[in-house]
Each structure stands twice: as C-alpha cells, then as structure tokens.
Design a protein around this nucleic acid. Sequence first.
DNA 1: CTGAAAGCGCTTACAG
DNA 2: CTGAAAGCGCTTACAG
Lengths: 355, 355
Amino acid sequence: MAHKATAQNVADLAGVSRSAVSLVLNGRAKGHISRVKQQAIIEAARRLNYTPNAVALSLRSRRSRTIGVLTWPDHSGVSVPMLHATLEKATAEGYLLIFMDTANDDDHQSRALATLHDRQVDALLVIAPQLIDYRPVDVMSTIPTILVNCLDPNGGLTSIVADEYAAGAAAARLLIEAGHRRIGVVAGSPNAMDSRLRLEGVEATAAAEHIDLSVRMVSTPDITSGFQAASRLLLAPNAPTALICIHERLALGAVLSAASLNIAIPTDVSLVSLEDGEQLAPQLVPQLTTINRPDRAMAEKAVTLTLKRFDKDRFDQDGDESTQQLTFSCSAAPRHSVVAPGRVNRAPCRPADRR
Amino acid sequence: MAHKATAQNVADLAGVSRSAVSLVLNGRAKGHISRVKQQAIIEAARRLNYTPNAVALSLRSRRSRTIGVLTWPDHSGVSVPMLHATLEKATAEGYLLIFMDTANDDDHQSRALATLHDRQVDALLVIAPQLIDYRPVDVMSTIPTILVNCLDPNGGLTSIVADEYAAGAAAARLLIEAGHRRIGVVAGSPNAMDSRLRLEGVEATAAAEHIDLSVRMVSTPDITSGFQAASRLLLAPNAPTALICIHERLALGAVLSAASLNIAIPTDVSLVSLEDGEQLAPQLVPQLTTINRPDRAMAEKAVTLTLKRFDKDRFDQDGDESTQQLTFSCSAAPRHSVVAPGRVNRAPCRPADRR
DNA sequence: CTGAAAGCGCTTACAG
DNA sequence: CTGAAAGCGCTTACAG
C-alpha cells in the first residue's frame, strides 16, 4: 500500500463516522458506541493495519512527543553511553529524540534552537561533553530545558551533573585503604571544572590521611599528555606506588608509559582511573580499576525529569504524591541533581609493598 | 510570549488574509499582492518573529523533512564520526534525524520502524556498526531506504559500503614499498565480512609480491586479543619487521604488547592499522600509520543519495541533467556505492632494516 | 489583485 | 447512542 490507512478509511470500512473510530480506538467508547460497532471498528482497524498519524496528532495536541537534544563535540567528545541511555529511556517513554549539533558555536546553536522550536519539541536537553558552565538561551525559558553535565551559572535551569569531587575522593580512598602512602596524580587542567573537582576530591582525602601526593597537571587530557606525565612520575626518585589518572585518556597514556618502562600494573604500581564515558578501559591489558562517571544514570534522570516537567498529566496519574512533585513544576525553583559516581573495580588494587 | 506567532497573527497585524501571508512569505507574491501589502506582511512577520510551524507544514505537505536512522550497538559500537557526519549533512540539507536503536533485535526494530512510519519520516537510513548482510524489512519497500556499512543479500536496497579489500591492499602495499618482506598480520575472524575482505586485500597484495605473511586470527577484535596475537608474532623466531592490524582495537593491543616487550614502534617494528571509526589511534604514543574507513564520506553520500531518492523536485531544480539522474529514481535498479578508503599516514613507516 | 474555502489527519465538544 | 462540525496551522486552487 502506498499510504497509511487513515481514520476515515477505518470508518468507511466499518460503516461508521470517523469520530466513532477515534472514540473507540482511544478507549472512550464506553456508553457511547454500541458493542457491535465497536467490534466492527476494531476489526476494520486491524485489517487496515491502522495506526494514527503522529504528525496529525502533534498538530492537534500541540505536543510532539519529541525532545530536542543539543550536543557538541569537544576534545573529549560527547559520551556515547550517555547519548545511548538518553535514547533508550526516551524511547521507552514513547518519546523521540532529535539530536542537534551546535558545533560549540552560538550561530549554529541558535539555528538549531529555531529549528527545534518550529518542530514543536516538547522539551530540550543540553548534553555537554565535559562539565562546564552553560549560559542558557532565551528560548529555554519557554521550553522546559534540562542541562546535563553542565551548570547554569545563574541557576535558572535545572542541571544534572556527576559528583566529580566524590569520584576523586573515592579514587584516593581506594588506594589509601590498600596501603599506599606515596600516590601520584595525573590531572587535567584546573581550568576544566571536572578535572579540578576531581583533583580537589583526591587532595582533600589525601590530606585528611596525611598522604604525600605528587601531582602533575597537563593542559589537555589526551593520551600523549598522560604518557608524558606518568613517565615523569614513575621515573622520579622515590616514585609513587600508585597512580590516579583524572581522565581515561590520561590513564591510557599512563598504561602505555608503564608498559614502555617495564613497570607492571598492578604488580609494580597500582592505577586507578576516573572515566568519562569513552569506554577505553574495559578491554585494556592490564585491566584497570576505574571509577566511572554515572552517565547512564544521569541520562535516565534527565529524561525522567524532563518528562515530569512537561507531562504533568502523566505525572499526576502516577499517584506518586510525594513532596518532590512540586519541585518539578515549571514555576518552582530549579533543582540540581548531583549523581553519585558509579564505581567499577575491574582489577583489585594491590596493596603497596612500601618499596 | 507563550506560543509562537501563527500566519493568522501576521495576517491580522498586517490587515490581510492569511493566504496573502503565505503567498508573500513563500515568494509567490509576484503579480498577486500589492507592493504595499507585501511590505506590511513582511514587516508584521518580522515583528512577530514569525516562522511557519513545521508540524502543520508536515501535515499539509505529507513530508516531514525528517530521516529515520536505525542503528544498534555491537562489540565494536557504531561509528561516532559516521553518525556525526550524517547529522551534519542532514542538517545542512534542512533535514532532521531521528535516531532509533534496534538493540540488534527484530522486535525492537519493528517497533522502531512502526514509530518512524507513524511519524511520516521521508526516508530511512540503516547504519550498521560493522559490515554485515542486512535483511530488509517489508516497510522499506514503501519508504526510500539506504543501507550504510551493510549489504542487502538480495540486492533490493542500495548500499553504501567501504572498499575494505582496497584498504587491506593499501596497508600491505605501504609496508612492502617501505621494504618490508616479513609482515605479520593481526586479523579478526573470517566470519566478520570486513575483517575477511581486509585480510584478502592484504594477502592478495603480499602474494603478488611473493611476500611472507604470518597471520594470526582472533575471534573478537578487542584490545586483549590484539595484545596476545601481537605478542605471539613479535616473539616468534624470525619475527616480522612490520605488523598490519585489521582493526583499531587490535592495533591498540599491539601497541601495548610492543611497549611491554620493549619493542619500539616504528624503530624496531612498523605498524599499520585499519581503522573503523572509534578514533583510538589519533592520540596514541607512538602515533600510528592508519588507513581509515571513509566514514564521513560514506555518511555524506548516504544522505545525499537519500534526499535525491526522495526529493525529486529539488533534484530536478538542480538542473544537473547527468545520466546518473535516472539511477536515483525509486523504480530504477539500486546502485551500490563502494567508497574508497581514506588514508591517513600519521607516522611515516620506517623502511625495514632486514634484521 | 484579493479573500474565502478546502483539505492534510486527527480529536473533542456539541447537536440531534 | 451517533454524526456533523470546529479547529490545530498551513498552502493551494478557486471564485470574485
């Protein structure tokens, strides 16, 4: 068949008006349509393989069941698991995602937003590749918008971010509890918010335990920088017995460095890496101990919040009358969500032998 | 303002009927509307910040300017550069992309297709994470569909694939021309079409030059397998002076292996890797010589073909009356596109010193 | 040269 | 209990 069947086609086949079709198919037939006609309509719909045209539905209801997603690439690239989880969750909720690349450029972004606005998206998600301050655009006061992995400095929009500080602290605790007293840290630039927060978490934890830290900062968190920084740390006199890498690419560099120096992980030196969603570590040899940014959890929370924000009806139906409910209404103050890091300990850390 | 301005709002402000608005704003005013009213309409539209509602447009024109994209993850994951290029190209052409994850599962896929059909997508793109045979679904005879990185065994649908054989041949030629006579190959499973074709390209080229090849096949192309296979090759008596890795993860494993064996690349052994779009190599130490699958070119070609397929009008306007034109009509035989590999030579191969 | 009408496919009051 | 009408926002014949 060239075209999809319409409600009119179903009505014709069943010998009723198309309002009757609509009523029956939407479960509002009760006390309106006779049993016989109901059956006829259902049968006709089945035979014609009828499903309502979503475009017409959108025009009528003024909601498109579509969420616009703004992303842009970066030296780190956007997290695939995060995008994937966003897609999965949205699909499960019956929503479509329209991805738009802003190319990290205001012009692109405003064009993208105009397009999304024209398409009547129900809500907007801004998914940043790395933790930054994000200055919202005007239209975001009109369309429910949630920031993921970025923060509105003025606090106007709700944000969902990972607890980077806690991730750093967890990494340090892990090594300290394994008995390490000399720990090296390969950190990114303090200008990068995630890097800075993670390092602060590491430092605070180390300080509380009076642990020596040798920190090397690199300007961009790439493999080469990780290699060089780790080499310096590993070759220094009185070298650390354990390494914390603040980003996964730095960790990959450190692994290469250790291998090239004939230093075995974790036998000779322990390594803990903080991950950003590129999933480089999972198949590495040797396997690494990693603390993952909770990308999937963040994504799911973002979609859930977005829909609650927008889709009041559905929310009320839920019968979940918790106090949280109020927080989600558009007029209420935005609510920032800080998601705890998920720890994946792939390789147990070796206790330090205090060489 | 709560809602977008409508054509009626513009008409009211300009004091004309809304047909006049439509005519003027679509450039069909010539000889219909007086200059004065044209100005009034344009001014009113500007003041109200009017842009047409895309949903209404879709309903009326029965085209949504939207392309549905079917993807699914895999041990290798879908290529981010490919998706990104698809998005960029589609956006540039004024089309939106709706990504759907089929989870490599028929049920998911048919649900996704039903959704896309309801949404009136103009066309479909199937983007496979690795080269496979893909059996089309019925609905794809109704909606213009193009396969990317996969092939319809019955040839019913147009496919865009990379020339994997040529990529393998290029890798071999590169090393042979640098003087290598003993070449090791870390290959994936012959059951994987891309892996098999690449290996065939390598083997044919080597055979033509009477070059010795030591091939090690692994069942899954992950880092660990690459590490192990490369270690075997490098430790064998009369070890190869150069390595070809059929997939990028295998190459990463090989690099780790060489580093752990204190074998320098490219000083002690040359390495050429075939890439699949994960972009692991770019920041590696040492940098690698790579031959990239032309993901961006494939994506752009896919979008172009899709739109030509669908959007006859636009194509005719182009005035491009080449013979190719006929090939794109829906009724014509499908046309398979094999895209030549793009070579990126990041690190010059060192000539073999015939140890 | 302009305005009223039809229609894309749907749902929801509103008469009968 | 059912059908005709209105309207979501748009464009395109078609009368005037």
